[in-house]
């Protein structure tokens, strides 16, 4: 009992001592905090080094999203690439967990160190593809999915992807 009482007084004394310590608070926005490049903020869609859309509409980000705030529809371009006909992120639901970025097999979807995206109207938090798409490659500069993948597109035929042999001639008779 007395011990408990003493503990209360010790607490009070410790707290009283804090009268002389400095506040930890950072005065944002006068002082901007340092955000690491891999900080998980606003989501963007990037382009590959050749300036083509990286997103292939594989739907993995959407299924990885724990709050189900990503919706998209796949389409096929003239040149054979898959692309999202629409790509929508409802940021009013997004929890910036970064699961979509981890799931993305093409480095298309990336989180950026920008978190200042408040709106007075919730509907402005719904970002469509044109709001998400940026021109650059984001954090990963060299990766181009179609150079690795076996799918043929205009300008990259079968056998021209990374470590691929020339297409087999089925009618060849050589062993």
């Amino acid at each position: 009992m007395l011990k408990a009482l003493a503990s209360q007084f010790r607490t009070l004394w410790t707290i009283l001592q804090h009268s002389f310590t400095k506040a930890e608070t950072v005065q944002y926005p006068e002082r901007q905090p340092y955000l690491a490049p891999r900080y998980r903020g606003r989501i963007v869609l990037t382009k590959d080094p050749d300036g083509e859309e990286r997103c292939v509409a594989c739907n993995l980000c959407a299924v990885a999203c724990p709050v189900d705030c990503i919706a998209l529809q796949q389409g096929v371009k003239e040149d054979g690439r898959w692309y999202p006909e629409f790509f929508r992120i409802n940021f009013s639901r997004c929890i910036l967990c970064g699961m979509c970025e981890e799931a993305c097999p093409t480095y298309a979807i990336q989180l950026t160190p920008d978190f200042e995206m408040c709106e007075y109207d919730r509907k402005n938090m719904v970002y469509e593809k044109e709001h998400l798409q940026i021109e650059g490659t984001g954090k990963y500069h060299d990766y181009n999915f179609y150079r690795v993948s076996g799918l043929a597109i205009t300008g990259k035929d079968k056998g021209q992807a990374q470590s691929e042999a020339e297409p087999v001639d089925v009618k060849g008779l050589l062993p």
Binding site: N59, A62, V63, C65, V67, D68, C69, I70, A71, L72, R88, I89, N90, S92, R93, R122, K123, M125, V126, E128
Partner: peptide
């Protein structure tokens, strides 16, 4: 059980 996009499908119409 993995159906995705529930909170985004209609978000362009209404959040």
């Amino acid at each position: 059980h993995r159906n995705s996009g529930r909170t985004a499908i209609r978000a362009n119409i209404s959040v």
